[in-house]
């Protein structure tokens, strides 16, 4: 129930990552990314905010992400232990981050070129 309520937040939102690249794992990874709250600090598409850095596009390698999630050291990122976020889930999150397309280039966005 409770986790469903988080999921319902994004129900009906279009998934704008590369449709072609969506594997079963990536789709599951997207759901986990939302369910375990990565999006709260990193944004729904891992785009980053003042609460957490950008994770995608071009994510860290899978091992890098896994290592950071397990032991984020003296940072503001909370650790996730295996019991609450199994390795398989981390791999799926990585697969999801890989599907996130590059955004348009700044020169193609007039709104970002206004004075």
């Amino acid at each position: 129930m409770k986790s469903l309520s988080i999921l319902s937040l994004v129900a009906g939102l279009s998934f704008c990552g590369s449709q072609a690249a969506v594997s079963a794992d990536a789709e599951r990874g997207r759901q986990i990314f939302e369910k375990v709250g990565c999006y709260q600090c990193h944004g729904f598409q891992g785009q980053g905010a003042n609460t957490g850095p950008k994770l995608a596009p071009d994510p860290l390698p899978a091992e890098g992400i896994a290592a950071f999630i397990r032991n984020s050291g003296e940072t503001l990122m909370p650790n996730y232990v295996e019991a609450v976020l199994p390795d398989a889930d981390v791999a799926d999150i990585h697969a999801y981050l890989l599907t996130i397309k590059k955004p348009p280039s700044v020169k193609d966005i007039p709104l970002l070129n206004q004075r």
Partner: peptide, 23 residues
């Protein structure tokens, strides 16, 4: 910041805070 951070999630939903601010 503008070329590397503001563009991220530009066309995505929910709407990014950078997009809202630029609009």
């Amino acid at each position: 910041l503008i070329s590397e951070a503001a563009t991220l999630g530009w066309d995505e939903t929910p709407i990014s805070t950078a997009r809202l601010s630029a609009e």
